[in-house]
Amino acid sequence: MAAGGDHGSPDSYRSPLASRYASPEMCFVFSDRYKFRTWRQLWLWLAEAEQTLGLPITDEQIQEMKSNLENIDFKMAAEEEKRLRHDVMAHVHTFGHCCPKAAGIIHLGATSCYVGDNTDLIILRNALDLLLPKLARVISRLADFAKERASLPTLGFTHFQPAQLTTVGKRCCLWIQDLCMDLQNLKRVRDDLRFRGVKGTTGTQASFLQLFEGDDHKVEQLDKMVTEKAGFKRAFIITGQTYTRKVDIEVLSVLASLGASVHKICTDIRLLANLKEMEEPFEKQQIGSSAMPYKRNPMRSERCCSLARHLMTLVMDPLQTASVQWFERTLDDSANRRICLAEAFLTADTILNTLQNISEGLVVYPKVIERRIRQELPFMATENIIMAMVKAGGSRQDCHEKIRVLSQQAASVVKQEGGDNDLIERIQVDAYFSPIHSQLDHLLDPSSFTGRASQQVQRFLEEEVYPLLKPYESVMKVKAELCL
Rank of each mutant, 00 (worst) to 15 (best):
R374E: 03
F30A: 02
W326G: 04
T111D: 02
F145M: 00
R14M: 15
R329C: 02
A260E: 07
L193K: 05
V315P: 11
G451H: 05
T227W: 07
E220D: 10
A49H: 01
L186T: 11
A136V: 15
K402E: 05
I373K: 00
C399T: 14
T158Y: 01
Q320E: 06
V198T: 14
E80N: 11
R452C: 13
S447N: 12
G288M: 04
E370K: 09
D333Q: 00
M76Q: 14
D332W: 06
V88D: 00
E417G: 10
Q177Y: 13
M89F: 09
F345G: 06
I369V: 10
L165C: 04
V219D: 07
A90S: 09
N68V: 08
M89G: 01
L255T: 10
T158F: 00
G54L: 08
D248R: 04
L179F: 15
R270I: 02
L469C: 13
F449H: 09
I386V: 13
V324S: 10
L142T: 08
L307Y: 00
G109F: 03
A49C: 09
K402P: 00
W43D: 01
K218S: 11
I385R: 02
V315Q: 08
V368Q: 05
D349K: 04
G418F: 05
E64F: 06
K233I: 11
P10G: 11
T94K: 06
V315A: 08
I237G: 09
V92T: 11
F379L: 06
I72F: 13
A47T: 01
S323Y: 05
E64W: 07
K187W: 07
I339S: 12
L222Y: 00
R37W: 09
I249Q: 07
S438E: 07
A322N: 06
N274C: 12
K276R: 08
R396E: 01
T38Y: 10
V413M: 12
F433E: 03
I72R: 01
D192E: 10
L131S: 11
V405R: 13
T94I: 09
G231F: 04
R196N: 09
K479C: 11
D117H: 01
K229L: 11
A235H: 13
L352C: 08
A206T: 09
L252P: 06
G109W: 01
R374S: 10
F195W: 06
V247T: 11
T382H: 01
S359G: 12
G393C: 06
A127T: 03
N185I: 03
S395L: 05
V368K: 08
L183G: 03
P100A: 09
R372A: 05
K229P: 06
C483V: 14
S334N: 11
D349I: 05
T94E: 14
N297M: 07
A335M: 00
Q286R: 02
F460T: 06
I339C: 12
M76H: 13
L53K: 02
K246Y: 05
L211Y: 07
N185G: 13
F379T: 03
P10N: 15
E370P: 05
